[in-house]
Amino acid sequence: MAAKNSVMVFVQQDDGKVAEVSIELISKARELANRVKSKVTAVLVGSGIRKAAESLIPYGVDHLYTVDHKGLAHYTPVPYTRVLTDVIKKYAPQIVLYGATTTGRDIAPRIASALRVGLTADCTDLQIGDYQSKGQTYQNVLYQIRPAFGGNIIATIVSPERKPQMATVREGVMKMSDPDPSFKGEVIEEKVELKPEDFPSEIVERVKQEKLVNLKGAQIIVSGGIGVGSKETFQLIHQLAHALGGEVGASRAAVDAGYVSKDHQVGQTGTTVRPRLYIACGISGSVQHRAGMDESARIIAINTDPEAPIFQIANYGIVGDLKEVIPRFIKAFRAKA
């Protein structure tokens, strides 16, 4: 039974391992589909992916389309675009979501170009609402919300006249829901015929290091900025993170100054985080940095400058020198915990 008008997610996988952002998007798609009273569909393309497909159903996928082909184990643009474009044409979803990853941002524009539909890049929020234009009201339109202009504005983009409405969504901004093992969904295998000329790219080498820093999964993040002052003083950030059982983050300025590696960078060009507690030390709070952390449940700002913008989004503010504040913090925590 074909489900037209669904909310569809492109599931990104590599070697059968599904990207976290795809599960975040399925969770969001479930919410959007409930709102517009339609189904959630997902497309998983790869090789030997049946098991991965079944593992996604409990997140709320009604129909999961798989395209299994040995040439599709790793992403390359031309064959993936062909396959996805065919599936989208066949099932005519109203919305298609992609992770704003290297892969998602490689394929989504090609599909938008092939289908001649709109695409909004790097969204940080998605909502459903009405849109009025030239005396006409479009109902249940996807609001595609994203920072633009170097993070200085937030734009709401719509593409009401053509379907599907498509967006890439930044990793880590949508909450992953808990899987429901009793959820009933169906895996549907799609057949494709691909010719050698559909594979103009060949991956000749690939080097991937597992990230040593897990900012996205961290519940507590202690971040340092340029105000920390030196690589030596940055040890205090490491000490506080270690004491609290948290991860070390940093602003771009601190990374550029060489205090810590880029893996630690939080913000628009780094990782987007939403921990239980974010402690910003010597970070002034640029728009770009805030874009990556302002969804944190609690924020403590420590800064010598009482006028630093970071205080405007913090729950607790301490004006003072890190060299005094951090040892006091650690001492107090050891005493209480």
């Binding site: 849109y131 504005i153 009401p160 405007q312």
Partner: peptide, 21 residues
């Protein structure tokens, strides 16, 4: 152009109550 800008918001800092320690 299928995409339209519905509206633009300048980034405004949210003003929650802050406790100074």
């Amino acid at each position: 152009s299928p995409t339209k800008v519905k509206n633009i918001d300048m980034v405004v800092l949210k003003s929650e109550e802050i406790r100074m320690i």
